[in-house]
Computed example of a mutant assay.
Amino acid sequence: MMINLSDTQKKLLITLKSKMCGEDLNMFDAALRGDVEMKAIDRLCELINEEFMMEGIDESFEPNQYGIELEGLLDAINKPRLVK
């Protein structure tokens, strides 16, 4: 499935990739190329959500700036599942 990421979203994806290891690295590379399988979209969304919960919210559980950027990335990655 094709995804379109902005340069900012690509940089954020590279940052997330640097925190990962193993088999997840290939799906990050595919996403950076703009072509991912549905299974990879599911996993990427899961990893972005985990990062959001750990680093993307403040003490009052509101999204911080990083969290807002993660939400935008999640929307872009998830878009192919919503458009059918």
Rank of each mutant, 00 (worst) to 15 (best):
M1H: 04
M1Y: 02
M1I: 05
M2Q: 05
M2H: 04
M2G: 00
M2A: 01
I3E: 08
I3Q: 05
I3W: 02
I3P: 05
N4R: 11
L5K: 03
S6Q: 13
D7R: 13
D7G: 11
D7K: 14
D7L: 10
T8W: 03
K10T: 00
K10H: 00
K10R: 11
K11L: 08
K11Y: 01
L12A: 02
L12G: 02
L12E: 03
L13A: 03
I14Y: 12
T15K: 11
K17E: 13
K17I: 02
M20P: 00
C21R: 06
C21A: 04
G22I: 00
G22H: 00
E23K: 12
E23W: 08
D24R: 01
L25D: 00
L25G: 00
N26G: 13
M27N: 02
D29M: 07
D29G: 04
D29Q: 12
D29S: 13
A30P: 00
A30W: 00
A30G: 00
A30Y: 01
L32R: 07
R33S: 14
G34F: 09
G34K: 07
E37F: 02
E37R: 03
M38C: 03
M38N: 04
M38E: 09
M38P: 01
A40H: 10
A40Q: 09
A40L: 00
R43K: 15
R43N: 09
L44P: 07
L44T: 06
C45Q: 13
C45M: 15
L47G: 05
I48P: 02
N49R: 15
N49V: 12
N49Q: 15
N49P: 01
E50A: 14
E50T: 14
E51Q: 15
F52C: 08
M53Y: 12
M53P: 00
M53E: 13
M54H: 11
E55D: 14
G56Q: 04
I57W: 03
I57A: 07
D58F: 06
E59F: 06
S60V: 05
F61W: 03
E62S: 07
E62L: 08
P63K: 04
P63E: 03
P63V: 04
P63N: 02
N64C: 05
Q65R: 10
Q65M: 10
Q65L: 13
Y66I: 09
Y66A: 05
Y66F: 14
Y66K: 12
I68A: 07
E69A: 11
E69V: 00
E69Q: 11
L70Q: 01
L70K: 02
G72Q: 13
L73S: 09
L73D: 07
L73K: 04
L73C: 11
L74I: 09
L74T: 09
L74Y: 15
D75I: 14
D75W: 09
D75H: 14
A76I: 10
A76Y: 06
N78G: 06
N78T: 08
K79F: 10
K84Q: 14
K84Y: 11
